[in-house]
Design a protein around this nucleic acid. Structure first.
Lengths: 284, 284
DNA sequence: CACAATTACGAGGGTCGTAAAAATG
DNA sequence: CATTTTTACGACCCTCGTAATTGTG
């Protein structure tokens, strides 16, 4: 039987046109490649090239062989990629979330409960999350709503309440509560990684211009230094403390309260039982 | 990148259960196979086995890898088979015929006109012939009827007239012509390789019992020695001479006359032009 | 103690690179 | 004369087999 490296070399020749150039591309000497192809022909008991002393071109057999070789090599590559990806997925717990806040607690809990596992987390739109969960890309996801489906396990995880963060000099800083529309139209400071809250802002404050900061640290400093409104939440305050020199006023719209739901596939429920139990007891 | 032989070895282990037995099956030493798999794991950067000092079993990665490996190896085998088959088909002209007579002339013509090609011929039912022609299994076929389709080239090749071959003592041996029904009911001698004529006999002489001879030589001798009727044709007589001690009487049914048609794919018409021209000029 | 897997070590096969030859435009 | 392919030869890598080691039922 021939070997994969010979097929790879054959394909290289097909793509480069000459043995010389293919050898170059393969980091191989010309003679080595020439002999390798002669050997491949021996093994297949078929000529693959029209030889003209000075020039070599694929004949019909060769063209067919190249076509088939591409398939074989592609499948071999797939094997490698798939096995590696599978192995990786066995050693990592991937969390998808619609917002940053749930991850703060979750990542730490998961790291504690599964110390041998790598934890990876990312924020995506809810439809991307659901697709990823279904395809096995995530072990579990956090949605801002309930997701009742027979093949999924879903329960509420935690609640987040949004607050305006205003400089003390702001005209509305004395209010006991505000609606989105009260601030709508003013420019506000926004951190980029806020998940689905970004969309909530766009919908509820359509007139507002958002000054988006990509860097967490830059954002914090800007909030302190500027007179622009921004947002915080109860979870954010509990996790990182109250922003300095700021008045926090609850947002009264119902959209400003999110109830995060933990969602996993039923088949993974057992594997995640330690985490699920921890979450449920924590809440009590 | 790994190599095919490593995949083959992996599959062998999956099938044999132990490295020892797999090594045996592969005509390889145990240690060699053990190291080979270690190397495969190195290359894939993934463990494929659960190792228990004394025992080795495929883990989940391994099971996935085996599954993928089977596909790759199968495709590699296909490559080999297909390329060889294609090469073979390039050097051979395969003829399919519904009856033996047309082949006598055709094979000799083709051998003359394409001396570098191998000629292979076989007899099949007409539907098998047409399917084989369509799939490229035959370069051309001989049918006992016209086959007008846009993608095929078809023209009459030659005519064959069936005769009864009777012993002089037979009560009907003096007839100037006979119908199938005149002999129907008598046992007859038949050579096995007569293509579609066999079916004609069954249809037109339903009461007759056919004594089928597989060997050409046995058949010839039996015809000479026995008092049973049998068949010959004008083409057979022209090719091999008249049977000895026999009276030949034309069969008058229209089914006893076959007009053979040469059929090839339009795309092959050019390659076969020498043959086609020879056939057409020969007829004149 | 039979059996399975791994490790150690030397042998052999195969591929590689360099050098040289042959052929073409 | 530059370019391309093929052949020759020696070097080296890699796989193989034998032998020895470890561990299990």
């Amino acid at each position: 039987m021939f070997e994969l490296y010979q097929l790879i070399q054959l394909i290289a020749i097909a793509e480069c046109g000459t043995i010389s150039r293919a050898a170059e591309q393969l980091h191989l000497s010309q003679p080595a490649l020439s002999r390798s192809m002669q050997k491949l022909e021996d093994i297949l008991q078929v000529t693959l090239f029209d030889r003209q002393k000075n020039k070599i071109t694929l004949n019909k057999n060769g063209k067919l062989a190249v076509e088939q070789a591409r398939r074989v090599v592609r499948q071999a590559q797939d094997l490698m990629d798939q096995v590696r990806a599978f192995d990786r997925s066995q050693r990592t717990i991937s969390i998808g979330s619609c917002a940053p806040a749930p991850l703060w607690k979750l990542v730490s809990m998961v790291s504690q409960l599964y110390p041998e596992m790598t934890v990876s987390s990312e924020m995506k739109d809810t439809d991307v999350l659901l697709e990823g969960l279904q395809k096995g890309g995530y072990q579990f996801i956090i949605l801002p709503f309930e997701w009742k489906e027979p093949e999924y396990c879903c329960f509420p995880f935690e609640k987040e309440q949004l607050y305006f963060s205003l400089p003390p000099a702001h005209p509305l800083s004395g209010a006991g509560g505000l609606y989105f529309k009260d601030i709508d139209g003013e420019s506000i400071l926004l951190f980029s990684q806020i998940g689905f809250w970004r969309e909530v802002c766009r919908k509820k404050m359509p007139l507002t211009r958002a000054l988006v900061q990509t860097e967490q640290e830059d954002f914090r400093e800007l909030v302190q230094a500027s007179a622009l409104p921004s947002f915080v939440s109860d979870l954010a305050i509990r996790w990182s403390g109250k922003p300095e020199n700021r008045v926090v006023i609850p947002v009264l719209d119902p959209e400003a309260t999110a109830v995060y739901h933990f969602v996993c596939r039923k088949e993974d429920q057992k594997k995640l039982s330690a985490l699920i139990q921890r979450i449920k007891t924590d809440k009590i």
